[in-house]
Nucleic acid binder design. Structure first.
Length: 317
DNA sequence: TTCCAGGGAAAGC
DNA sequence: GCTTTCCATGGA
């Protein structure tokens, strides 16, 4: 059993002026959880290191970590990269966006602090394979159960007592999992469990990793096509993997909420029709005309949260 | 009981 | 190739 202690306390001051407060952990960050020690923290495990966010204000982020580096980067550099603090997607929107959609612009500006995290590709693939046709709550539960059952336990030694964390399982751990046992972690969905195992074996044998590793050089469509060869990964999930796990901020996933705001906010008529494969691509093209190409997915994610919270009045993130 | 939840794949045209 | 139908599960 690994026992970790917090050895680092670091203050990060983003270059841009983001109001990260409250919005930082929105959405795709399924493995972030609130924990209670003396005051609210947010905690997650990156590789084998534990990361705690102690405080976030408009000007800085205070971070605690169990090591002085992660993935070969200093904690400060890692945080900047991990939270994509270099991206100001509001500024990256096309010039005429504000003039063309003033009401959306007004609603969207407070969401500029929503960050897309550069999360681990394998973890994101598994996470979004768990995300078909079910609610956020159940997605989170599946990911937690998978980590608890197949990940490595890490204990954090704190003055207030031990806290238990789990690393996300390696591809090998899931590749060798028993389907019926894994299905207990996937809402008893055996097909999903089998798909994850098959994917993990592909990942292990480098059938998937080239597209992931080389994604920066790889045309987006090639990355997506490679992902879609896996059973259990369709177009939407492939886009989510590219966006949240491969740093492809041009990938634009379309789900039921995105489809709704594409019609309600931007008047794209095709968004009233069924999401067939052809219509899905068509809607992406239309969205890129409005949001620009390079950060279409990033902007879409802000719009996604803005829509859910401001219009649909949903509380859960 | 019914219907929805950040879809996917098989069957059908 | 594109569209419609079926599938699967938990929770409100």
């Amino acid at each position: 059993m690994n026992k970790e202690t917090i050895i680092n306390k670091i203050i990060i001051q983003p270059d841009g002026i983001f109001d990260l407060k409250e919005t930082l952990f929105s959405g795709q960050s399924f493995r972030w959880s609130q924990i209670d020690i003396l005051e609210p923290y947010h905690a997650t495990v990156i590789g084998k290191r534990i990361l705690l966010i102690k405080e976030i204000t408009a000007g800085y982020i205070e971070v605690l970590c169990s090591d002085d580096s992660i993935n070969g980067m200093s904690i400060s550099d890692f945080i900047g990269w991990y939270f994509s603090l270099d991206i100001d997607v509001i500024k990256a929107l096309p010039e005429n966006f504000c003039a063309d959609f003033p009401e959306v612009w007004r609603l969207l500006k407070p969401y500029s602090g929503v960050r897309i995290l550069r999360q681990n590709p394998f973890e994101i693939i598994v996470t979004f394979m768990c995300a078909q046709g079910i609610g956020m709550h159940l997605i989170r539960r599946q990911v937690s159960m998978i980590a608890e059952r197949y990940g490595e336990q890490i204990v954090l030694d704190t003055p207030q007592g031990d806290l238990i964390f789990h690393t996300f399982p390696t591809p090998l751990a899931l590749a060798s999992a028993d389907p019926s046992e894994l299905s207990r972690c996937t809402n008893n969905n055996r097909v999903r469990a089998a798909n994850i195992i098959t994917m993990a074996r592909s990942f292990e044998s480098d059938m998937l990793t080239p597209a992931c590793v080389l994604s920066d050089d790889c045309p987006l469509v090639t990355v997506l096509d490679t992902l879609c060869t896996q059973s259990g990964i369709g177009m939407k999930i492939a886009d989510c993997i590219a966006l949240f796990g491969l740093g492809r901020f041009d990938a634009f996933p379309i789900d039921t909420h995105v489809k709704q705001y594409l019609w309600e906010w931007f008047g794209i008529e095709a968004a009233q029709h069924t999401l067939t494969g052809k219509n899905y691509r068509h809607l992406q093209d239309e969205a890129r005309k409005i949001l620009g190409n390079n950060y279409a997915g990033y902007a879409g994610h802000l719009l996604f949260h803005c829509w859910r919270k401001e219009i649909k009045k949903m509380k859960a993130f």
